[in-house]
C-alpha cells in the first residue's frame, strides 16, 4: 500500500488504528535493521524500534506531507539511535567507557550473529567509524538509500553526505587491509 493511502487512513478517526497497523507492518523490519546495525544488541534494537513507532503514533497527525513518510520515519529512527548511543556513552559519567569495544564484544559473543569471518571483520571495521558517519554508511551501503533520501532523513546536505560516505569507505578499506595483512 502507498504511503499516502496509509496516511489518509491514519488521519480518519474510524480507520486510524488500521492505518497505523499497516504502517508498522510496512516499516517495522526496515526500522529494526537500521537500529540493529547501529546498536548491535538485539534487545536494545527491539526497544528502540518500539520507541520509534510510538513516536510515529504520537506525531503522525502533525506530519506534513512535503517529505516522504519513509524518510520521516528514518529521521525519527536515526535520532533515536544517535541519542541512545550518546546516552550510553555518558552513562555513569565513566570517561574510560569504550562503546566501540563494547559493541565489538557483543558482535563476538552474540548468538544472534550469523556471518563468515570476512563479514564480521567488515562489521567491526564499520564500528570504528564515528556514529553519524556509521549511520550514513549503513544507509547507503546496506539500505541503498539515495543521497537525496538520506539528506531528507538526516537533515544534512547531499554534498556533505557524499563526502562523509567517501571518507567512511576509505577508512573501512584501510581497516580491512590492515586486518587482512595481519
Amino acid at each position: 500500500m502507498e504511503d499516502s493511502e496509509i496516511i489518509s487512513l491514519f488521519k480518519q478517526e474510524e480507520t486510524k488504528h488500521y492505518g497505523f497497523n499497516l504502517l508498522v507492518t510496512k516499516y517495522q523490519k526496515k526500522v529494526y535493521w537500521l537500529t540493529r546495525k547501529m546498536v548491535i544488541d538485539h534487545d536494545d534494537a527491539n526497544d528502540l524500534t518500539q520507541n520509534v513507532f510510538i513516536k510515529v503514533w504520537k506525531n503522525l497527525d502533525r506530519f506534513r506531507e512535503d517529505a516522504s513518510l519513509y524518510t520521516w520515519i528514518y529521521r525519527i529512527a536515526s535520532n533515536e539511535c544517535l541519542n541512545f548511543i550518546k546516552k550510553k556513552k555518558n552513562v555513569l559519567f565513566i570517561p574510560i567507557y569504550d562503546l566501540t569495544k563494547d559493541l565489538h564484544a557483543k558482535l563476538d559473543s552474540s548468538t544472534l550473529v550469523d556471518g563468515d569471518e570476512v563479514s564480521i571483520r567488515l562489521q567491526k571495521a564499520i564500528l570504528t567509524l564515528p556514529d553519524k558517519q556509521r549511520l550514513v554508511f549503513n544507509m547507503k551501503y546496506f539500505d541503498d538509500l539515495t543521497y537525496e533520501e538520506m539528506s531528507a532523513a538526516l537533515g544534512t546536505s547531499v554534498g556533505a553526505l557524499k563526502a562523509s560516505y567517501h571518507h567512511a569507505v576509505k577508512k573501512i578499506e584501510q581497516h580491512l587491509k590492515i586486518n587482512l595483512n595481519q
Binding site: Y32, H42, V113, G115, S119, L122
Partner: peptide
C-alpha cells in the same frame, strides 16, 4: 574492496 563483500545481513532475530 567493499564491492567484493556481499552486503548480506549477518544479524539474526529469534
Amino acid at each position: 574492496l567493499l564491492e567484493k563483500h556481499s552486503k548480506r545481513n549477518i544479524y539474526t532475530v529469534p
